[in-house]
């Protein structure tokens, strides 16, 4: 069954002077009511994609519809049905949380009693009621982020954009914010497009995700689909001493285990279900008189997925922005 799309982008391209190609044919489809994760290293094109979809800027080529409206033809209609939580904090730090929300409400034409009601409602939902009349400058990082989200939700948008919502937050605050986002998605039946360069974040929150690199979507699917494409878990075994037999021989005949490699005392293999294969693996080694020092089982991570599709790790791309720009 084909679900209605909340976001549809086709072949978006954008080049910044002096010729940095930020988007090189990005196409996306986000079904209504789901959380979609857009993953990629810094400079991959995540934020540019969000800026195009939120009408902040225009693409050089391609087309996009958000909440059923063409972003190029009718940007103000798009603005009325989206909420945007940008990468930077969007609140005025010299004003109180409530004042920020009041002004935001006015921008959407929400006034009077309705404004009071909505502001009180989002303050309560994001647990900001007690600090509502404090100047934002005195807020903690987590509180400021929750205020940003409150501002994005105030007018009950159909589509919410969260651009790297947890970057720069403490680990505990991140986990807390994830819970918040999951709760919102469940309660509001809202479509959320989330960009992040944290694998665990995308894994935890997104029903669907796409990896973007150098302005292109390199792979798309559910987190599980993407991970299972990696042909199973990695089993790493440290042997007590270098084994004499050929590597294929050591684990020959153990069901469900393949891609066996032996380098000195380092034995690696892949198994569709790693934890089920381990007893048989250890049994086979013991039967051949090989002493095992340690066994490690690694589930494929999204990092592995990324490595597979973009050919480098996130950390490397993060540390080398020029490589992305080039």
């Amino acid at each position: 069954m084909e679900l209605e799309s909340a976001i549809e982008a086709s072949d978006l391209s954008k080049t910044y002077p002096p010729g940095v190609q930020a988007l090189d044919g990005v196409s996306l489809r986000v079904p209504a009511g789901t959380i979609f994760g857009l993953l990629g290293p810094n400079g991959a094109g995540k934020s540019t994609t969000v800026r195009v979809l939120t009408t902040l800027t225009r693409p050089d080529g391609g087309a996009a519809r958000v909440a059923g409206v063409d972003v190029l033809a009718d940007p103000s209609a798009v603005r009325r049905s989206i909420g945007v939580v940008g990468q930077k904090h969007g609140a005025d730090t010299a004003a109180t949380g409530r004042e920020n929300l009041n002004l935001q409400a006015e921008f959407y034409g929400i006034t009077g009693a309705q404004r009071r009601h909505r502001v009180a409602d989002v303050l309560q939902r994001l647990r900001l009621t007690e600090v509502a009349d404090r100047i934002v400058r005195t807020y903690s990082g987590g509180m400021r982020r929750r205020l940003d989200i409150a501002m994005g939700l105030l007018h009950r948008p159909a589509v919410l954009f969260l651009d790297e919502p947890t970057t720069g937050l403490d680990p505990e605050v991140r986990v807390e914010l994830w819970r918040e986002i999951e709760r919102l998605a469940a309660q509001e039946l809202m479509t959320i497009l989330l960009t992040t360069h944290y694998m665990d974040e995308a894994d935890k929150l997104a029903a669907q995700l796409a990896i973007i690199d150098r302005g292109r979507i390199v792979v798309e699917g559910t987190p599980d689909e993407l991970k299972s494409q990696l042909r199973g878990d990695a089993i790493q075994i440290q042997l007590a001493e270098p084994a004499a037999a050929g590597s294929g021989g050591l684990l020959a005949g153990v069901p469900g285990v393949g891609e066996v490699e032996l380098h000195g005392t380092d034995l690696r293999a892949r198994a569709q279900d790693g934890s089920a294969a381990i007893p048989a693996v250890l049994g086979a080694l013991e039967a051949q008189g090989v002493t095992v020092r340690t066994v490690t089982l690694a589930r494929p991570s999204l990092d592995d997925v990324y490595l597979r599709h973009a050919g480098r790790t996130f950390t490397r791309a993060d540390n080398d922005p020029m490589e992305v720009a080039a």
């Binding site: 603005r79 930077k88 969007g90 005025d92 730090t93 935001q104 959407y108």
Partner: peptide, 16 residues
């Protein structure tokens, strides 16, 4: 200051 802090982009994504 609004541009640096992100306030400007937030305002410009609203229908103000």
């Amino acid at each position: 200051e609004d541009i640096e802090s992100g306030v400007m982009d937030r305002m410009l994504t609203t229908p103000v």
